[in-house]
Simulated assay, not measured.
Amino acid sequence: MPHEVRMPQLGMTQDSGVIVSWAKAAGEAVAKGDVLFEVETDKATMEVEAAADGFLSGLTAKAGEDVPVGEVIAQIVESEGEVVTEDAPPQEATAPEPAAAPEPEAEPEPQPKAAPKPPAMSSARVLASPKARRLASERGIDLAGLRANGVVEPIHVADLSRAQGGGASILTAEAEGTAFDALLAREDGVGARPRLLAAFAAGAWGAVLPDQPVALALRGLDGALEEIGDAAEGAARLTLTDLCDTRLTGFTPAGAGLALSVARGPGGYRLGLAFREAALPLPAGAALLDEIAARIEDPIRQLL
């Protein structure tokens, strides 16, 4: 009877594990106690051993995949003839049909040129260990940017240091603040300001990059990070730091990523946007910052 190989639970709070590598290939003989694969969790990287003798069969997860605890990822079968090496059964061969005589080619009709689309960010999920994903979130590191800069997936904690060397592009803008200050006066003053700015940033993002979801977070100078709303799968991450009650004029996290800072300026507000052009093209970054500034100057744009 086949023995199921499942993603083990190696910690009390572990929900999943990332397969770092397989030590055995499908069809290879294994003995009880042999290392089958290496898995990384929030706590550590550990080797998982075979619990039975036989042949490794039916691998359903590849290196780099984040697999839920308890999910079957392979089997150990008793005989080599039972080994399954493909996810789908082989297709029966069929005799090829005789090729039809080629028809004369028709002159292609001229097609109208499609209008160029604005640059968009990749929404594919980045493969990363749970611990690396958590630390990247805490440090404001954009995992998609790391991937775009050549870091091989799955991304591990050690790879996050690649983001500490800078390499961020920074745009700044100023916005006249009369209308925004009047809006704050009707709200809760200082307490409402960060959330209004986050709402403006989200609205501007939707106007500039409608096909790319975004997740907003408020970052304090004390290191605290507060998520705003629920993040959609594959969403880009934008952190906002409100500096209006300080003398500071800008803030760029060490991990860069996508970071927006808002400070007081001579005529109202000074905005700074830090980003990596491999993740957010410069035209999109410039358009985004301009749209945020426009909403501060005229909050009615948020309702349009």
Rank of each mutant, 00 (worst) to 15 (best):
A136D: 04
G272L: 01
P130G: 01
G220I: 06
D230Y: 11
A106Y: 13
G206T: 08
A217L: 03
A74C: 04
V35R: 10
A236T: 14
L143F: 14
L289I: 15
G265C: 01
A51C: 04
F200M: 09
L280K: 07
E107H: 08
P283G: 01
G11S: 13
A168N: 08
P118D: 05
G189D: 04
L260H: 04
D290N: 08
P283H: 09
A31E: 12
R162E: 12
A148N: 14
K43H: 06
L280D: 03
A207D: 10
G33A: 04
G165H: 11
A158L: 04
V84S: 06
A259Q: 11
L304A: 14
Q91E: 15
A25F: 10
A52K: 12
R193T: 09
P68Y: 07
D34M: 05
F275N: 06
A198V: 04
P2I: 05
E49A: 06
L225K: 10
L171Y: 12
F200K: 06
A278T: 15
I296E: 03
P108G: 03
A278D: 15
D211G: 00
A52P: 06
A236Q: 14
K117V: 02
V126Y: 11
I76K: 02
T178P: 01
T172N: 07
W22T: 07
A124D: 15
D159F: 00
G203A: 04
E297G: 00
A173W: 11
P253C: 02
R193F: 03
I300K: 15
A259V: 05
A204T: 05
G167S: 06
L218F: 05
R219A: 04
S123W: 09
E107Y: 13
M46Y: 14
D290G: 01
A114S: 13
G27L: 01
V48L: 05
S169I: 07
G223D: 07
A120Q: 14
E291A: 14
V18E: 11
A217F: 05
G27R: 03
Q302T: 11
G234P: 03
E28L: 02
L304R: 15
